[in-house]
Design a protein around this nucleic acid. Structure first.
Lengths: 198, 198
DNA sequence: TATTTTAATGATTTGTTATTCAAAATTAAA
DNA sequence: TTTAATTTTGAATAACAAATCATTAAAATA
């Protein structure tokens, strides 16, 4: 019995990330993805039901990985809420340092997919958010984070801020250093605009 | 010479906002836009060169209007940086209160258009951002805003946060009250997560 | 009223690209 | 070496939708 050669499925995912990032999902051609992956056009449909499923698979992998990292962090008893918050920021940035292309695909396509979903979006996304929220709640409970925060709103605030900054960096890596953005997010989020306000 | 009847150009813009918001730009059909606008498909091409130009025109109108409002605000001498910041938030929210559809189109399509631009994106966008930055710089200069802020990064942070929150609200107006989001943005931005930190 | 000019139309054309599928190639087992 | 099972292929197809343009209709002008 014949075995599948190499790892075509993985090659296709990698190629798709590259092509989706370059042209945006809607302008990306499956034929081009196949070409970059070094497989025939038809092979893409051996491994994936359709174009959208390729995109969903990309998101599933990203969020699954980030969720697992965050889970490990949240469970640590000895780490303070402040350190955990910084580590949360790092988890996201570390993921995108691996591949700016992933960042671009995410920023550009995730929202669309979430709001116009036909297929189910990865469960790990929701799970990641919930863990992030619990991390901040822990800080509030311990009296070190501001209790006037509506977490349900804050999570969108922070996610959105992330999205734009990550996109800014991924689009123009000459101008923006990843590290300065990382530090800035940590700073803004903790201290806000106001000087000596509280 | 024949006069143009009614205001077809405006009807098309309005219909396009509705249809783009419902389906997303890429899935929206010009034929459907024309139908909603009560004109023939071909008429869209009498008023606009192509589909993308319709979208660009929508953004031009939105940002032009918001820019003018912000310009008026920034010039006021007697208003404090804090009040100005709140008013800036209100300018954006007021625009979107007018039409959640506009908010959706903006959140979903602007980024794409900015990063993959063939056509020139509206100048008013950049001008709006610059005014916003100068507003915050004024607060720093007067010693009431935190001077550790990298404005070039902060502007993306805030814009991104806005985008997500506005989208959240526009998508699910049952769960999120516009006013609570408005207040939350003002709060988070000024005070941040940290309690008694500065 | 006749003529000219321009607006408006929508069926048709054109171009694009996701997806299919019959055939070819490859490998494992007999 | 042959056979069978499975993978891979890529040209062909089907579906879709943007954009066109020959035609019609209405207003302005003479």
């Amino acid at each position: 019995m014949r075995h599948k050669e190499g790892n075509k499925r993985e090659d296709i995912i990698k190629a798709a990330i590259k092509i989706f990032a370059e042209n945006g999902y809607h302008h990306a051609k499956i034929a081009k993805v196949a070409e970059v992956a070094n497989v025939a056009t038809g092979s893409v449909y051996v491994y994936f039901e359709n174009k959208e499923k390729v995109l969903l698979e990309i998101f599933d992998e990203i969020w699954k990985d980030m969720y697992n990292n965050l889970k490990e962090l949240v469970d640590k008893k000895e780490v303070s809420p402040f350190e955990k918050f910084d580590a949360l920021v790092d988890i996201i940035f570390d993921k995108f340092t691996e591949s700016p292309e992933i960042a671009l695909v995410m920023v550009n396509e995730q929202n669309h997919l979430l709001t116009h979903k036909k297929e189910k979006f990865t469960e790990y996304y929701e799970k990641f958010i919930e863990l992030g929220v619990s991390l901040i709640q822990e800080g509030i409970d311990k009296g070190v984070f501001n209790s006037g925060i509506d977490l349900n709103i804050y999570k969108h605030y922070l996610l959105g801020a992330f999205r734009d900054l990550v996109n800014t960096w991924a689009t123009d890596r000459e101008t923006f250093s990843l590290n300065s953005i990382r530090q800035s997010i940590k700073y803004f989020s903790k201290y806000g605009l106001c000087k000596n306000c509280m």
